[in-house]
Design a protein around this nucleic acid. Structure first.
Length: 907
RNA sequence: GGACGCUUAGCUCAGUUGGUUAGAGCACGUGCUUCACACGCACGGGGUCACAGGUUCGAGUCCUGUAGCGUCCACCA
């Protein structure tokens, strides 16, 4: 066996093991009835994306879950893939085209799509390669892409199916229009942002009473040419007389428009009168509908004013038009007032410009299974972690609106609808739409394609990714599903994602699963996943979201190069408590690396301290352990090992990853390295205790590697083999099962519970003695001589641990005897320790020190006594607490007495 | 306007059902090239747990309110 190197160098180790795992097919998930399935579908990143810190966290957690599942004996499937990301990808390619001074229309649909595909060939999958560098144990042979032929078939089938069920319809309605991307957007893709502007107070002259006006307030004077009415509240006494009268539109084509009454008007806002512009506002549109007032659209698709806005405004961009309209109003004396105003404006998420409410023909989806989707979460078939997100989810479902699923883009799934040639698509009626001679909807398309024209629009990306949990397993093709193990792996076990896509993706997947999978079967067989773990968002030091545009996100690959993939994984998980946003700190990643190095060196220490014995199985190690030779430290370390194992179990059950990491860190670094390994140094010198001590180390290291493996897979796999835990050709990650503590405890080991408490006390004593030395100017490494005055019981304990204690306190000798009154002493839980090298201690200083300590203890005693003399406390506190307080008082008083005795001895 | 989250050491954060003197990592100070590890060891300084009330024998923890920060939802032009 090769000697373990002095420090851990991750690069070679990571490369080697990832290649070996791939080579051996360790990541494959295959239906295996002998095991429980554990399934995770990756939230598919954008196909042309690159790895961000958010991906690192998200995918590390998924990898942790599947690796742990494997160790628990599950058949784990982590299915990877990418999303075609319609708008995002198309935007990127169009930007490239613009460098050549071309637009997608110059190329035409077909050529443009070729370009996108070749872009995808070039950049696609980079992110998956990056995930491999992170150690992701996904089944790459199953990699899916939402534009793959089979996946696309599933998407189109769903469209046809829902259309057949009447859940999908075409309608001319108000949509959120992005004037840059030139497409409709769903409500979820619109972000409300406060925008600074002006509130213009405008007066409209009454036709019948010249010189009389009605005033309205608006932020968008450029849409006045599109006004079709002025609305007031029917119950507003100020305006009762105005209802039914007409006013003149102050700018744009001359027109007389009516004053109408509608309850949508808020009496208390502004003047209480509202201009009605049905083509450019959702509420106005509804009002217009109610009053049968046809909309006048004064904007073009890219948000310039058109000829309907009148010659003064036509051709202007909407913002220039706004200024111009205000000027025109002023000139005509119609502008009463103009005041700075801040209101919320909807922005296009992708293009970051204000969206326009726009009346267009679109395809709409009435969500299926809304009620079932609610109960799936409400009744606990799907559990959210943290639970509070379920409230957000339910609230959204309560207020759900039809989903605009068509996009005026080219990159995406083209909608499987054909219109009869020559049909005027702009003026379709309900009857036309229902007529199969005019509108054809099918997977195969019409049999006489020459007579038909296919719909130009494509589907919203989310209208493909909402099928991810089952379309990736071959749905709806029965033979592919069987091959993929659909029956075995669905429903998936856990979804790991960010709360920012709870509506976009999570809720929709739930509805899709309920609608399409295993129709007629119980809800719990149709849901797409059982657990949803919502990660926090990674922020920078200033608390800003990490994003490419801000450039505040470190490149994960740089971090891997610097700290190793394991270091990065350990670090990121340790700062990611459940459901809380994370402020990224690189020093935590460094901490991860340092932990790996610590682990490495502890194994190195084991290897340097004796021949490796039979480590081939847990049983083999347990057979080498000799319980009769156990001392308190042996009992204590194994008890802590079992407790840590249980704690990690609990953490996995409750998705508390950072708590698991902290538990393992504390156990390994503090309990094992700082104490057990240190006391081992004495035990290893003694042939009588050496073999048992090494066996215990082997047991602890083995279990620690198993527990740590999901978090830091590379180094644990490597050390697993270096220490002989795994045979050649086998893998920790694939061929090993995590045994639970009761099994370990069940192999003839009776752990003494009291030993742990004794070790804790010994640690405190050692710590106190070290501090005592430091206080008196003796370096920890300096050999000191101690005389201890202790009770028989305490001395017995000290005596039993003498060699270790000498090493831990840096003592040449620790003897029992009478104290020197002049040498400094410290009162510990196990006797008073006298530092006799300092015979010439300064009695005055020593006195002062003791007095200070006495003062402190007196305070504590007073506090404890006060509690104990409180009648209510004594009668109401639980016995354990009461007893604890009494014992505390006794200890404090004993210490006080001892301090007083020392003080008296000083004279 | 509604909902949710956060506020604990200089920084980033833990703190399970209320129970001794509130913890960790980093940073800081002192001392250590001790035969696993300086990516380390030992010791130390540092907190009126945002604020104000309340419940309780006992509150960082439960309740009410206030403030600040953040997120989401919402058709006030």
């Amino acid at each position: 066996m090769a000697q373990i190197t002095k420090s851990y160098e991750p690069q070679e180790v990571e490369k080697k093991w990832y290649a070996d795992w791939l080579q051996a097919g360790c990541f494959a998930g295959r239906a295996n009835p002998a095991r429980r399935p554990y399934t995770i579908m990756i939230p598919p990143p954008n196909v042309t994306g690159v790895l961000t810190m958010g991906h690192v966290l998200n995918n590390t957690l998924q990898d942790i879950l599947v690796r742990r599942a494997r160790l628990e004996g599950c058949e784990a499937l982590w299915l990877p893939g990418t999303d075609h990301a319609g708008i995002a990808t198309q935007t990127v390619v169009e930007r490239e085209l613009r460098k050549e001074k071309k637009t997608r229309r110059d190329l035409g649909r077909e050529k443009f799509l070729e370009k996108v595909w070749s872009w995808r060939e070039e950049k696609g999958g980079i992110i998956l390669k990056q995930l491999q560098a992170l150690g992701a144990s996904a089944d790459w042979s199953r990699t899916q892409f939402t534009m793959d032929p089979a996946y696309s078939q599933a998407v189109l089938k769903v469209f046809v199916d829902l259309y057949g069920k009447g859940q999908i319809y075409r309608g001319k309605r108000m949509v959120n229009w992005c004037p840059v991307s030139l497409t409709a957007l769903s409500d979820e893709e619109v972000i409300m942002k406060p925008a600074k502007g002006f509130l213009y107070q405008v007066r409209y002259e009454l036709v019948s009473q010249p010189g009389q006006f009605i005033e309205v307030k608006t932020t968008r004077p450029e849409t006045i040419p599109g006004d079709v009415a002025i609305a007031v509240h029917p119950d507003d006494p100020r305006y009762t007389a105005f209802i039914g009268q007409k006013v003149r539109r102050p700018i744009g084509p001359a027109a007389e428009i009516p004053i109408i009454a509608d309850t949508a008007v808020d009496k208390s806002f502004g003047s209480g009168a509202l201009k009605i512009t049905p083509a450019h506002d959702k509420v106005d549109f509804e009002v217009g509908q109610r009053h049968k007032l046809p909309p006048i659209d004064v904007l073009t698709a890219d948000a310039k004013l058109n000829e309907l806005a009148g010659p003064e405004l036509a051709g202007l961009d909407r913002f220039a038009g706004r200024k111009k309209a205000a000027e025109l109003l002023k000139e005509r004396g119609a502008l009463v007032k103009e005041e700075p105003y801040e209101n919320n404006v909807g922005y296009s998420e992708r293009a970051d410009v204000p969206i326009e409410p726009r009346l267009t023909w679109q395809w709409w989806l009435k969500y299926p299974r809304i009620e079932e989707a609610k109960s799936a979460v409400r009744d606990g078939h799907i559990k959210f972690y943290p639970e509070r997100w379920s409230k957000v989810y339910l609230h959204w479902l309560e207020n759900i609106q039809d989903w605009c699923i068509s996009r005026q883009l080219w990159w995406g799934h083209r909608i499987p609808v054909w219109y009869a040639k020559g049909l005027d698509k702009e003026s379709l009626t309900e009857t036309d739409l229902a007529d199969p001679k005019k509108v054809h909807v099918s997977l195969e398309g019409p049999s006489d394609p020459a007579n038909w024209v296919q719909e130009d629009d494509v589907l919203d990306t989310w209208a493909s990714s909402w099928l991810w949990p089952f379309a990736t397993l071959g749905w709806p093709d029965k033979s592919v599903m069987d091959k993929a193990g659909f029956d075995y792996f669905y429903p998936t076990t856990t979804l790991v994602t960010g709360p920012d896509i709870i509506f976009f993706w999570v809720a929709r997947m739930i509805m899709a699963g309920l609608e399409f999978v295993r129709p007629g079967e119980p809800l719990e067989r149709r849901i797409p996943f059982k657990h949803v773990y919502f990660t926090g968002i990674i922020r920078d030091q200033q608390g800003r979201k990490m994003s490419k545009s801000l450039g505040n996100s470190p490149d994960p690959l740089d971090l891997i190069a610097k700290y190793g993939a394991d270091g990065l994984r350990f670090g990121i998980v340790s700062i990611a408590p459940q459901g809380q946003d994370i402020r990224f700190q690189e020093d935590r990643i460094e901490g991860g690396k340092n932990f790996c190095n610590k682990l490495w060196n502890a194994c190195r220490f084991r290897q340097m301290n004796g021949e490796m014995a039979d480590n081939s199985s847990l049983g083999a190690i347990l057979a080498r352990i000799e319980p009769p030779k156990f001392d308190a430290d042996d009992h204590a370390i194994l008890a802590r090992l079992l407790a840590t194992t249980r704690e990690v179990d609990r953490c996995f059950a409750e998705f508390e990853f950072s708590a698991a990491v902290q538990a393992l860190y504390g156990f390994f670094w503090n309990d094992f390295c700082d104490w057990y390994v240190e006391v081992s140094k004495a035990k290893l010198q003694d042939p009588a205790t050496k073999a048992n001590c090494l066996a215990i180390q082997d047991l602890v290291l083995r279990q620690t590697l198993l527990l740590l493996h999901p978090f830091i897979p590379f180094i644990t796999e490597d050390l697993w083999h270096q220490l002989g835990y795994g045979a050649e050709g086998t893998f920790l990650m694939r061929d090993t099962q995590l045994e639970n503590p009761s099994q370990i405890a069940g192999r003839g080991l009776k752990l003494d519970g009291a030993a742990a408490a004794q070790v804790e006390t010994l640690k405190a004593v050692v710590s106190q003695v070290r501090a005592f030395k430091a206080e008196h100017g003796e370096a920890a490494s300096k050999v000191s001589e101690f005389v201890v005055e202790a009770s028989d019981a305490h001395w017995t304990i000290l005596d039993a641990n003498l060699t270790k204690l000498k090493r831990m306190t840096g003592a040449g000798s620790i003897t029992r005897g009478a104290m020197s009154p002049t040498a400094p002493a410290t009162v510990t839980a196990y006797g008073s320790w006298n530092l006799i090298k300092q015979l010439k201690g300064d009695p005055a200083a020593e006195k002062a020190r003791l007095k200070k300590e006495l003062e402190a203890i007196a305070k504590h005693i007073a506090g404890t006594q006060a509690r104990l003399s409180n009648e209510a406390f004594v009668s109401k506190a639980p016995p354990a607490v009461l007893e604890g307080a009494r014992k505390q008082l006794a200890d404090q008083q004993a210490k006080q007495a001892e301090l007083e005795r020392l003080l008296a001895a000083l004279g």
